[in-house]
């Protein structure tokens, strides 16, 4: 127990004794974890952002003038069955007239003897879909239906957004993978450098008869303390940043960043595992 307390104390004291190397180490752990965290948050919110964008996609379908409400209802039911269609709203001729009157405060029937507005339908596209959403086939299918006069859509814009999303997702995955590799290397090398700078201590401990585990323990504990410290700082910054960004976004749009905070646990785990791996590898060079 005395030995354990001593080793535990040494792990903590070493943080103070080697302030500069510890600062370098904690700072680099902090930096890479912030980058990893930002990627985590970006990944989590890309899907939410694209769903938000898709909720704004609208296809307006106008029916021929001669169509009855019943026929229009039938076509709307057909449209609803097309894969990729999330919801449909039928606007009958009478409803269109009411909308016109309420928006423009004019009664068309006063100066026209008939209702010139066609029946129409607003089509919303599905939001939840992994990967690229193709709207062109949906539009083509609607256009080919009997009774459909014209279709208003933002097909080009939607296609652009979808392609951008697809490329972004691929880019994000590549960057995340590269960052993870760099993270492992940076944290593990920083810890290695810290241990190399303490060759004298290791030599002295060997000479006085310290066992390998006695020599290893303070380094491993120090590595864990450093990674927990770096991860705590990174978690604090990320939490604060998400909070700040959401306050800002809340004033501009209904879209806010959504974060599953359990990922912070992963951040700590990554840091600790990498530091354990790094310190064990580095110390094994001196303690065989």
């Amino acid at each position: 127990m005395d030995k354990f307390l001593f080793l535990f104390g040494e792990g903590i004291k070493n943080l103070w004794r080697h302030k500069l190397t510890v600062f370098t180490s904690v700072f680099s752990i902090f930096l890479v974890l912030v980058v990893v965290g930002v990627l985590f948050i970006a990944e989590q919110n890309t899907q939410k952002l694209i769903e938000y964008m898709r909720s704004k996609y609208k296809i307006e379908v106008f029916f021929v003038d001669s169509i009855t409400d019943k026929q229009a209802e039938q076509i709307v039911l057909e449209i609803r069955k097309i894969p990729g269609v999330y919801s449909t709203t039928l606007i009958t001729k009478d409803q269109a007239l009411q909308i016109y009157q309420s928006q423009f405060n004019e009664d068309l029937l006063e100066f026209l003897d008939y209702n010139p507005l066609p029946s129409s339908c607003v089509v919303n596209i599905t939001r939840k879909k992994d990967g690229l959403l193709h709207v062109k086939p949906i539009i083509n299918k609607i256009q080919s239906m009997k009774g459909v006069d014209s279709v208003n859509h933002q097909g080009r814009l939607i296609n652009r957004i979808e392609k951008f999303y697809e490329k972004g997702l691929l880019g994000l995955s590549i960057v995340a993978f590269a960052i993870m590799l760099v993270t492992v290397m940076i944290i593990s090398n920083t810890i290695k450098l810290t241990i190399y700078s303490k060759k004298d201590l290791i030599q002295a401990l060997k000479m006085i008869g310290a066992t390998n585990s006695f020599i290893r323990m303070p380094f491993i504990l120090e590595g864990i303390f450093q990674s927990v410290l770096g991860a705590s700082l990174a978690a604090g910054l990320l939490y604060g940043a998400v909070f700040g960004v959401n306050v800002l976004l809340g004033q501009l749009t209904s879209f806010t960043l959504h974060v599953q905070w359990t990922f912070l646990g992963w951040l700590f785990l990554i840091a600790v595992v990498i530091s354990l791996f790094g310190s064990s590898r580095a110390i094994s060079r001196f303690v065989k």
């Binding site: 030995k3 004794r17 004298d200 002295a204 401990l205 000479m207 006085i208 008869g209 310290a210 066992t211």
Partner: peptide, 30 residues
Amino acid sequence: LRRSIGMISQDYHLLADRNLFENVALPLHV
């Protein structure tokens, strides 16, 4: 075996960041 041997060398191998008391006490911790 090394605990039954006391080593001293030309380069001292004292720990620069610990005071005399802590350096001398180190083997007892071990």
